[in-house]
Write a protein that binds this DNA or RNA. Structure first.
Lengths: 128, 128
DNA sequence: CCGTATCCAAGGTGATACTG
DNA sequence: CAGTATCACCTTGGATACGG
């Protein structure tokens, strides 16, 4: 096979990265990072602001990519649990690193944003 | 301050992660990962399929967040170079890890997708 | 409880042509 | 060379209500 090169527009690794960076994928990975099964409702409650529709869609996509295993227990009420597969667990470190970076550098980034916006406002003033 | 928690819907670290996972941000980080300045056109050529508009937007966003430094050399023709700031360089390892994961696990993911789709087709057949 | 169905809004993204 | 300007799309994501 040819070595994957994500800079190549035809390389399918782009679709893989795209899924990993879907809006809610990192959140789901974070919740499931401890490798234990989690119920739909629990995941939904932990990830504040996600809608059931999108959670379902994202979980399905992750299941299709082999990142998540879905276990259904036929019972009343129904019980469905999701957990990361070995493949899914292997993506935890990169995702967690990214999440931690976002959390740890939040203030620094906000500071830069404020400075940038202030400079923009100043330029706009000077130009007007 | 309060510790950042990305699972909290009000936590601004979500906006940071959002930018890191913008469609083209990982590509730009990849191209600029060697810490040297790169010209606009070079970046554009390396990232196949990106339009000049979106490249500009993403670079601006990264500049605002303090990840990228933009250096303008007044000359004819104009010369503009972009390079990662120290903050930007600190995000290279997580991003590169994610990119490498996508490239290295491409075949495995594709295999899972094929299996999943085949199962779906089978179920659909059986159900019809 | 675990979703699906439906509709809708938003904005990210793209193609292209043009300018300082 | 390095963008900006426009336009439109169209996928993603959101709100809600309902079904198995």
């Amino acid at each position: 096979m040819q070595t994957a090169d994500i800079l190549n527009s035809h390389c399918l690794s782009r679709t893989v990265l795209r899924h990993l960076t879907d809006r809610w994928t990192p959140f789901i990975v974070t919740v499931l990072a401890d490798a234990t099964p989690h119920r739909f409702t629990v995941i939904k409650q932990r990830i504040q602001g996600i809608s059931p529709k999108v959670l379902t869609e994202t979980l399905r996509s992750m299941e299709r990519d082999g990142l998540v295993d879905r276990q259904v227990t036929a019972s009343i009420p129904p019980k469905v649990e999701y957990q990361l597969t070995p493949l899914g667990l292997s993506v935890v470190p990169p995702i967690e690193a990214l999440r931690l970076w976002a959390e740890e550098h939040l203030e620094e980034v906000e500071s830069h944003r404020a400075q940038y916006d202030a400079r923009c406002a100043a330029s706009a003033d000077g130009a007007s």
